[in-house]
Design a protein around this nucleic acid. Structure first.
Lengths: 143, 143
DNA sequence: CAGCATCCATTCAGATACTG
DNA sequence: CAGTATCTGAATGGATGCTG
């Protein structure tokens, strides 16, 4: 198994949710809010930034942009603003010239990162099966 | 706490990942693939369909569209095709007129649904804090 | 350095019409 | 019933230039 951005212990613990039973019903209103939150939170850049900040602890704007492969300055700013608004990151501006701004995760942000651990594990473990399924599908429809 | 689309037992087990330690490094190539997969899998409609199929077990096209609030016929078809390609759903066509097509989750699909359990729990638990953070942020920037 | 403002190409997704 | 095909407005996101 390849390496994930989580400790071995956290991974092991998260493994235990792998076997799931039939679900109960959900309150539609809660569901709507939850879905919106997940949608926001599960977008491409938010997850990558979450990762980098989890890994590095605290980063400046430029360092962060260097660590997130392929992100534009616009998207980095935009995503960080959203995350700050949602209470996931803390933005600290140091009053110096040239300006220096640090970003780090709040407790809320860290806990979200932890919650995603299970999904990372799933993706990591089932990458091959998904890849195989895609090839099989493409072979079928190619004919 | 409000109700989630998972059994109490699964929820309880998933709770144990809530406390997370500092992470390790990731292989960039694996990370890219994992990220892509998560991005695809975490999109709005995929998640909602995953839920409905988890809940209902097996559904026909029309019933599914009725259960997923606000989805267009186009998006339903498109998302189901993607999920089928990724090996998450099984599509069964019955050769009758009028046509009848059943969709249900594969094992892979079910396990993904399970992997998301942790995220649902997080969203459910922290909804209030996110909401509060947003209001605080908006109040600050409104000035 | 950290970012905002603007422009522009691409993509996305809804509405509509049609079909085996 | 379960789609496919097409059109179109909306949203996304990159590139570029400018600023405290």
């Amino acid at each position: 198994m390849s390496r994930l951005p989580f400790s071995a212990e956290a991974v092991e613990r998260a493994h235990r949710i792998a076997a799931l039973e039939p679900p109960a019903e959900v309150d539609p209103r809660v569901e709507a809010l939850v879905t919106q939150l997940i949608g926001r939170v599960a977008d491409k850049w938010t997850m990558l930034i979450l990762e980098e900040l989890t890994e590095a602890g605290e980063l400046r704007f430029t360092r962060l942009s260097a660590r997130v492969p392929g992100i534009s300055q616009k998207m980095l700013t935009q995503t960080l603003r959203q995350m700050e608004r949602d209470g996931l990151v803390l933005r600290t501006v140091h009053a110096v010239v040239p300006p220096c701004v640090d970003y780090r995760l709040t407790d809320l942000g860290s806990s979200l990162s932890a919650a995603f651990c299970g999904v990372w594990i799933w993706a990591d473990q089932h990458l091959d099966r998904v890849e195989a399924a895609r090839q099989a599908f493409d072979a079928r429809s190619g004919r």
